[in-house]
Lab assay of single mutants.
Amino acid sequence: KVKIAGPGLGSGVRARVLQSFTVDSSKAGLAPLEVRVLGPRGLVEPVNVVDNGDGTHTVTYTPSQEGPYMVSVKYADEEIPRSPFKVKVL
C-alpha cells in the first residue's frame, strides 16, 4: 500500500548533492513513517522528512561520501516492500 519513487533511490546518486524521494502512504492509513540512511562503514546520514499534507512525504538527504548506501523505509514499524533500498553513491 505504500509506494516510493524518486531519483534519491536510483542509480547515479552523487555524493554531496541533495537527494530526494517521495513516500506515498495515502492508501495505507495513518501510521508513523521512519526513514534511515546508512552509508559506508555504518555512517548514519541526517534525513529530513516533510509531510505534504496529502498522504505523501518528501524525504531529502545528502550522502557525504561515495560508496554503498542503504535506505530503510518503515511504515507502521514494518519495512515497506523492497526496503531497505541499496543505493550506489558515486
Rank of each mutant, 00 (worst) to 15 (best):
K1W: 08
K1Q: 09
K1D: 00
K1T: 06
K1Y: 06
V2W: 00
V2L: 05
V2I: 13
K3E: 09
K3I: 15
K3F: 15
K3P: 02
K3H: 12
K3W: 06
I4E: 03
I4T: 07
I4G: 04
G6K: 03
G6L: 04
G6C: 04
G6V: 03
G6Y: 08
G6E: 06
P7W: 05
P7N: 08
P7S: 10
P7D: 11
P7M: 15
P7L: 08
P7K: 07
G8A: 03
G8L: 04
L9Q: 02
L9R: 01
L9N: 01
G10P: 05
G10R: 07
G10M: 11
S11G: 09
S11I: 14
S11W: 07
S11N: 15
S11L: 10
G12W: 10
G12V: 12
G12H: 09
G12N: 15
V13S: 03
V13I: 08
V13Y: 02
V13C: 08
V13W: 02
R14Q: 13
R14Y: 14
R14W: 08
R14A: 10
R14C: 12
R14V: 14
A15E: 09
A15V: 13
A15R: 06
R16S: 11
R16Q: 12
R16M: 14
V17T: 09
V17A: 08
V17D: 07
L18A: 13
L18I: 09
L18R: 09
L18C: 12
L18P: 12
L18E: 15
Q19L: 00
Q19P: 00
S20M: 11
S20P: 03
S20K: 12
F21D: 00
F21K: 01
F21G: 00
T22M: 10
T22D: 07
T22Y: 11
T22I: 15
T22G: 03
T22W: 07
T22R: 07
V23K: 01
V23G: 00
V23P: 00
V23R: 00
V23E: 01
D24E: 04
D24A: 02
D24S: 04
D24G: 01
S25K: 11
S25A: 12
S26A: 07
S26N: 06
S26W: 02
S26I: 06
K27D: 14
A28L: 04
A28F: 01
A28K: 03
G29E: 13
G29V: 08
G29H: 10
G29C: 09
L30C: 11
L30G: 13
L30K: 14
L30I: 14
L30T: 15
A31C: 10
A31Y: 07
A31S: 10
A31K: 09
A31T: 03
A31L: 10
P32N: 13
P32T: 09
P32M: 07
P32H: 15
P32S: 11
L33S: 03
L33Q: 03
L33E: 03
L33P: 11
L33W: 04
E34I: 13
E34D: 14
E34T: 15
E34P: 00
E34Q: 14
V35A: 05
R36V: 12
R36P: 00
R36M: 10
R36A: 12
R36K: 15
R36Q: 08
V37F: 00
V37S: 02
V37L: 08
V37T: 02
V37R: 00
L38M: 13
L38A: 12
G39S: 11
G39M: 01
P40H: 04
P40C: 04
P40M: 05
P40E: 07
R41N: 11
R41I: 11
R41D: 15
R41K: 14
R41C: 14
G42M: 07
G42Y: 05
G42C: 06
G42I: 01
L43I: 13
L43D: 11
L43G: 11
V44C: 11
V44D: 15
V44Q: 13
E45A: 07
E45H: 08
E45M: 07
E45C: 14
P46D: 10
V47Y: 06
V47D: 02
V47W: 04
N48Q: 10
N48T: 13
V49S: 08
V49C: 12
V49H: 07
V50K: 13
V50W: 07
V50N: 11
V50Y: 11
V50C: 11
D51Q: 11
D51M: 10
D51H: 12
D51G: 12
N52S: 07
N52W: 05
N52R: 10
N52H: 12
G53I: 08
G53A: 11
D54F: 07
D54V: 05
D54C: 08
D54M: 09
D54E: 08
D54P: 04
G55S: 10
T56C: 11
T56Q: 09
T56N: 09
T56E: 06
H57K: 09
H57S: 10
H57Y: 15
H57A: 08
T58F: 14
T58I: 10
T58Y: 13
T58Q: 10
T58M: 10
T58L: 13
T58K: 13
T58C: 09
V59R: 00
V59N: 00
V59P: 03
V59G: 02
T60Y: 08
T60H: 10
Y61P: 00
Y61K: 00
Y61W: 11
Y61H: 03
Y61L: 00
T62Y: 08
T62F: 07
T62Q: 06
T62V: 10
T62I: 08
P63F: 02
P63H: 03
P63S: 01
P63K: 00
P63T: 01
S64C: 11
S64N: 09
S64H: 08
S64A: 10
S64W: 09
S64Y: 08
S64P: 10
Q65F: 10
Q65T: 14
Q65W: 06
Q65R: 12
E66W: 10
E66N: 08
E66C: 12
E66F: 09
E66S: 11
G67T: 02
G67N: 01
G67I: 00
G67C: 01
P68A: 15
Y69V: 04
Y69M: 05
Y69K: 00
Y69T: 04
Y69I: 06
Y69S: 02
Y69L: 09
M70K: 10
M70T: 15
M70Q: 15
M70G: 06
V71Y: 02
V71T: 00
S72T: 09
S72L: 03
S72V: 07
S72P: 01
V73D: 01
V73M: 02
V73Y: 00
K74S: 06
K74I: 07
K74T: 06
Y75R: 02
Y75Q: 03
Y75A: 04
Y75S: 03
Y75I: 07
Y75L: 08
Y75T: 02
A76W: 05
A76S: 10
D77S: 10
D77H: 14
D77T: 07
D77Y: 08
E78R: 09
E79W: 06
E79A: 06
E79Q: 10
E79N: 12
I80Y: 03
P81S: 07
P81W: 03
P81K: 06
P81Y: 05
R82V: 08
S83A: 05
S83P: 02
S83W: 00
P84D: 02
P84W: 01
P84E: 03
P84A: 01
F85N: 02
K86Q: 15
K86D: 10
K86I: 13
V87H: 02
V87M: 10
V87A: 03
V87P: 01
K88N: 15
K88P: 13
K88I: 10
K88Q: 15
K88Y: 15
K88W: 08
V89E: 03
V89P: 04
V89D: 04
V89C: 11
L90E: 13
L90W: 11
